[in-house]
Write a protein that binds this DNA or RNA. Structure first.
Lengths: 149, 149
DNA sequence: TTAAATTAGTTTGAATTCAAACTAATTGGT
DNA sequence: ACCAATTAGTTTGAATTCAAACTAATTTAA
């Protein structure tokens, strides 16, 4: 393998670390903001309820696919949301194996206060980055995922 | 905020998901390969010992900074490596708060077999992606991190 | 039509994670 | 010189994570 190709692989490892750092920063910043309003809502729970805020009634499998968590983790986190009265599971009529997760009224209401806080952190992360640049980074990460499959 | 800027923030969220997916894929692929040789070495432990393979004698704080894990997680993972006879802690002479983590002979030997496996997965992820493209993605993620600080 | 294979979600067990509080050591301010 | 503030790492507790095995339901193959 050429030195050139070696550099790209080296950068891929650095990208992995940078990605971990970015996720860690986002998580801390967002958690800090949420704690002021709802200390019982963790960043992990927010990832799930955030999906429901944008698309109520998703099934567990789809939720797991989007956030890339094991289905047993999804079961655990959804149970936490249910325990907190923020969501409920409804068994599918057509396929009883399927369970759709819907927001409760309380869960919907949380959106009003919490979503703008999380959004603001993402906006801050974006700063002056241009849409074209973000698009290219997204496409590259997706390409790497495809290469791994 | 303009629609344009809204799209970039939306893409930043998608980037977050894609990054989680990529990490999950890397982790599974690498773990599969390692399991054939050393089922006792998890991907998480590999992240740490991998750093030591490239830079023996790092202190715990620096290790934590690079992989973006809480210092208590670093304590836990290093203890696991020590338990497995792969690493040892040496207290710094100049600053007794500091502990450097060195590989044992056994830990060094693991590199020979394991490192190429992990490297191959990264190489596969890179595929035909060019150095310039990877560089741009890395720069963007780093910019987002800076924007969050 | 029946049975095997597959799928969606749950349970279990252990590993990994982080926040908070702690100890011990060093640094900085007076 | 002394003490407060800070730092590096550890401990504790609880949350989160995934792999494996499970149950129940659906799909596929014979």
């Amino acid at each position: 393998m050429t030195k050139h190709a070696g550099n790209t692989t080296e950068m891929a490892m650095e990208l992995g670390w940078a990605m971990s750092e970015m996720k860690s920063c986002l998580r801390q910043k967002i958690q800090e903001k949420i704690n002021g309003y709802d200390p019982d809502l963790s960043f992990e729970l927010l990832e799930i309820i955030g999906l429901l805020w944008r698309s109520d009634g998703m099934n567990q499998q789809d939720i797991g696919r989007i956030v890339s968590k094991d289905k047993s983790s999804i079961t655990y986190l959804i149970s936490c949301l249910v325990e907190r009265g923020l969501a409920k599971r409804i068994t599918g009529k057509k396929d009883k194996r399927n369970k759709q997760v819907f927001l409760t009224e309380k869960g919907r209401q949380k959106r009003e206060m919490i979503f703008p806080l999380a959004l603001a952190v993402y906006q801050r992360a974006v700063g002056t980055i241009k849409e074209k640049e973000m698009q290219q980074a997204l496409a590259l990460v997706k390409k790497m995922i495809i290469n791994l499959e």
